[in-house]
Simulated scan of single mutants.
Amino acid sequence: MKYDLTRKPTRGATRTLNTFAETMQQLLVTKPFEKISVNEIAKNSKLPRATFYNYFDDKYDLANYCWYAMSQEINLDEYEKFKPAELITVYFERLFELLNANGELLTGIKQHNSADGLLLTSFSNYFKGEVRKIASRFDNKRTTDVPSQLVADHYCSTILLVLEWCFFYDNQVNRQTAYRYLNELLSIKR
């Protein structure tokens, strides 16, 4: 992404980034990702195409920003106070609620994009990276010699597997049931 998200954005930059993200989300409800063009995003945003390119390399970059913006809504800034196993649970629950709250967007995405298409792959890859950061905090002082990175990859893949199963494959389950599935797959004890 051209815009540096590590620095505090100005009000104008925040407004512009949010406008492009909201426009992308509105378009995703009505059409496939592959059929959305940068021209259409700029036109619907009522911003110049050149402004789009000041912030993003292409529409794929904007999709990643949309995932980033969604991930900011689950506020894991306070993660230091959680033990790693608790953090996995908190992250799963918050991500479940985030996806649940964005039902219209997810319905549109599912309706117009294939489950193994670019958009959902982008979503999975982004959130796997976020979960991997959290899961990598697990120390390897376990009774096994499994490398900690492999453990982190296992946790992040399982979390995303359960969430994708719940939200992208029309398996209507509540949070408690989804958590029970996760718990059984990961053998997490509260």
Rank of each mutant, 00 (worst) to 15 (best):
E104N: 14
Y60L: 13
V90C: 12
R132M: 11
N125G: 02
S148G: 08
P147C: 11
Y53F: 12
V146C: 06
V146S: 08
R132L: 14
S71R: 02
H112D: 12
R49S: 03
E78W: 10
L119I: 06
T144Y: 06
Q25W: 06
F123R: 01
F20N: 00
S45G: 05
P147F: 10
D57A: 11
K128L: 10
L17H: 09
K35F: 14
P48C: 00
A69G: 05
N64V: 01
F96Q: 12
Q72I: 05
I88R: 06
D61A: 07
D116F: 14
H112Y: 15
A115I: 15
P32Q: 13
E86D: 15
N64S: 05
P84Q: 03
F20E: 00
S45A: 09
K128I: 08
E40P: 10
Y79D: 08
N100E: 14
L47P: 00
V38H: 01
R15G: 09
V38S: 03
F20A: 00
M70V: 07
K35S: 15
I109E: 04
T121C: 13
M70D: 12
E34W: 11
L27R: 03
L106Q: 13
A101Y: 13
A69D: 10
T121L: 15
Y55C: 01
A85R: 08
N64A: 05
D153E: 07
H112N: 15
Y68D: 01
Q25P: 02
L87Q: 01
N54W: 00
R15N: 13
L17V: 06
E78M: 06
Y126V: 02
A42F: 03
F127Y: 13
E130M: 12
K141L: 13
Y53G: 00
Y68E: 04
T107D: 14
I36L: 07
E34F: 11
E93K: 15
P147L: 11
F52T: 06
A152E: 09
P147N: 14
S45C: 01
